Amino acid sequence: MKLIGVTCISTIQQIAMDRIFDDKDGIIRYSSDAPPTHYTVKMQSFSLLLKNAVEKYESGEFEAGGYKWKLVLYPSGNKSKNVKEHISLCLVIADASALCRGWEVYAVVRLFLLDQKKDKYLIVQDALGRERRFHGLKLEWGCDQYIPLTVFNDASNGYLVEDSCVFGAEVFVCKETITGKGECLSMIKDAPTCKHVWKVEGFSKLNEECYESKVFIAGDHKWKIQLYPKGRRLGTGTHCSLYLALADFTTLVPGSKIYAEFTLRILDQVQAKHIGGKAKYWFSASQQQYGWPRFMSLTYLNLPSAGCLVKDACLVEAEVTVLGISSAL
């Protein structure tokens, strides 16, 4: 396959066009003598794409209107959209991750296929000549049924001659905006639950305000248990306080949130009658911990019959299930 880059021009030339027919999906097909001004893809031995089961071909990147683009061709139809017996062709904005958050680009897009017998191009674009909107959730625009394979493969139509063909694209950026706000929520199906047990020894000798467990992983994020042996806030002096906290909150992308269901327990080491608290909470960089300042009274904790302290050691257990993640667009 041979790729031919074409220089971008700043104005749209007036061209003589022979209108062919309107498409019910809001696109129009017509023919033109003028070649695509921005990019051309010449394909040789096209039949080998089908023979070798190549489902998708992406061109190299090209620049138009200050943005990078690429053509994407599906030789036997875009299977993800259940397209058969057609060539699918679309334009994709490339390297979208490098663009500013909240970006939007409005562009007039034309897709080309050369009729080599008539030296004219079959062009597809919006039926009303409207610009197409590209953004973080819509990176492409095109035609799933660009041309039937029966028409394309018939050499008398001029599109495939000596097993070679030529496709192309024009992109004219009309407007750019940055919304600056937006988010994407991804809920997790059949999310796994992670269990972590922390043995706290020498409980009666703990003098620091807060102690933390080793870091453990749940839902691809790092967590830790926080224990305040003499209480915190409303529980100071009367209760022990227990919290679950994100251990990697400083690495979160700004605006990200993690929705987790969790249970914290102080295990009864004698009768297995565990005391626990269960909650669901949106964790984030600004709200990285959640729990109970009055988790268990110190009076109950120190009762021998409660089984919470054995040989001055307690077992603290966390069960964490990450149910969803919300991130900024």
Rank of each mutant, 00 (worst) to 15 (best):
A34H: 15
S59R: 13
G158R: 03
D163I: 03
A155G: 00
S88C: 02
A260P: 05
E55Y: 10
T299L: 10
R132P: 00
G136H: 09
K118I: 06
G102H: 09
R233W: 10
G136V: 05
L3C: 13
Q287L: 08
R19D: 14
L91C: 14
Y30T: 04
K280R: 14
K205C: 04
R232W: 02
I178A: 03
V41F: 09
P304L: 12
V41Y: 03
W141A: 03
Q269W: 09
W292E: 06
E85L: 07
W292C: 00
E58T: 12
I28Q: 14
A285L: 07
A107R: 07
K2N: 06
A247C: 08
V197W: 00
F46W: 15
R101A: 05
D312R: 02
V270D: 11
Q226C: 09
K278R: 11
I28M: 13
R19E: 15
E208R: 13
D119Y: 08
S76I: 11
Y290Q: 05
C184W: 01
W69K: 10
T37E: 05
W141M: 09
L50C: 00
A53C: 13
K195A: 04
A34K: 08
T179V: 14
E170C: 08
K222T: 05
Q269E: 09
V72S: 05
T7P: 13
L3K: 11
A328Y: 10
E208L: 10
I123Y: 09
S305N: 14
L122F: 04
S286W: 03
W103Y: 13
A191V: 02
S326M: 15
F283G: 06
L298D: 02
S204R: 08
V253T: 14
R232N: 13
F262S: 09
G219M: 01
L128V: 12
Y106K: 12
D144A: 10
V124L: 11
G77H: 07
G277Q: 03
W198H: 02
T7I: 11
D312F: 09
L242W: 01
I225P: 06
E261G: 04
V124C: 14
E63W: 01
C240G: 09
V310W: 02
L242I: 00
V72L: 06
S327K: 13
L315W: 04
L89A: 07
E140Y: 10
E170V: 04
T321Q: 13
T37L: 14
D33M: 06
T299Y: 11
I15G: 05
T193K: 03
V109M: 01
D119W: 06
L234E: 06
K214Y: 02
T250Y: 03
D268F: 08
I258G: 13
M1W: 02
L49C: 07
S204W: 01
G26Y: 10
G202N: 11
E319R: 05
Y259K: 15
L137M: 06
K70Y: 11
K68G: 06
I217C: 11
I147D: 04
S10W: 02
Q288P: 10
D18V: 10
K280W: 00
T193H: 01
Y281P: 05
M187T: 01
N153C: 09
S32Y: 00
K278E: 00
R233D: 12
K189M: 05
E58N: 14
G102D: 12
V253Q: 14
L252A: 05
W282M: 04
F134Q: 11
S213P: 07
I178H: 07
G77Q: 01
S186E: 08
